[in-house]
Design a binder for these strands. Structure first.
Lengths: 114, 114
DNA sequence: TAACGATACATAGTTATTCTAGGTATTAGT
DNA sequence: ACTAATACCTAGAATAACTATGTATCGTTA
């Protein structure tokens, strides 16, 4: 599981919120765990650094898309995040946006069944 | 054909080079024409402003992925761009990167035949 | 028991890329 | 003569992820 398989980081811009929110929609998770979970699900393509993910989580919380709560587990203090109803609505819109974007790129570059 | 169908502009980052180079790989085009052509092919999703596209073309040229030449057509001076061999190699790599990225996003958000 | 690596959270400042907002010049139509 | 469309251009703003660094705790092992 090589970390940092070289996907241009610029490609990522605008996609992180939907990646994080979708993952949180399945179950509450804490930051450090989210990094591993997203890396696992993307099969190593997305390997967020902590310095990248934590500020994103703070932004998502400021927007009201997630809520956080501290919880001790296995003798460790962890800050869990839970998606809100507003966040669920938001992720629905962003997913639709992603579909639109993906389809448009594929049309131009000529992949995806054209 | 409404310009600016709201695809988050951040999503675009990292994708413009491959969009432009792929279009140029089909035939030489000039900037103003490229904007319309990409808008047409993406069915209105990507509507670059001139202030966006021209600097991108200059960057692509500086990287050696395209070459430009002035040509008069229909009584108008136009700056045409032609993709180079180096550009063709580059766009191949970027397309592969796009496939990897797209697949990874779809895996995480749970679309695309998982 | 001291040292070290892994876990877990955090922020300041840099970098990269697109957009905004302006500008110039030419041509075609009214 | 005026206006809209064509065609090119750049400087500076805005945005978002990354780099680098810091703190603290826990488990393992020498």
């Amino acid at each position: 599981m090589e970390a940092n398989m070289k996907v241009n980081k610029e490609l990522l811009k605008g996609s992180t919120a939907v990646l994080v929110l979708t993952t949180l929609a399945k179950q509450d998770q804490y930051g450090y765990e989210l990094i591993r979970e997203i890396e696992r699900q993307s099969e190593g393509v997305f390997a967020f650094k902590e310095g990248t993910l934590y500020p994103i989580l703070h932004t998502l919380e400021a927007e009201g898309w997630v809520e956080s709560y501290w919880q001790v587990h296995d003798g460790r203090k962890r800050k869990y995040y839970r998606i809100t109803d507003k966040g669920k609505q938001h992720v629905k819109e962003r997913k639709a946006e992603w579909q639109l974007f993906r389809t448009a790129v594929d049309r131009v570059i000529g992949e995806g069944g054209v």
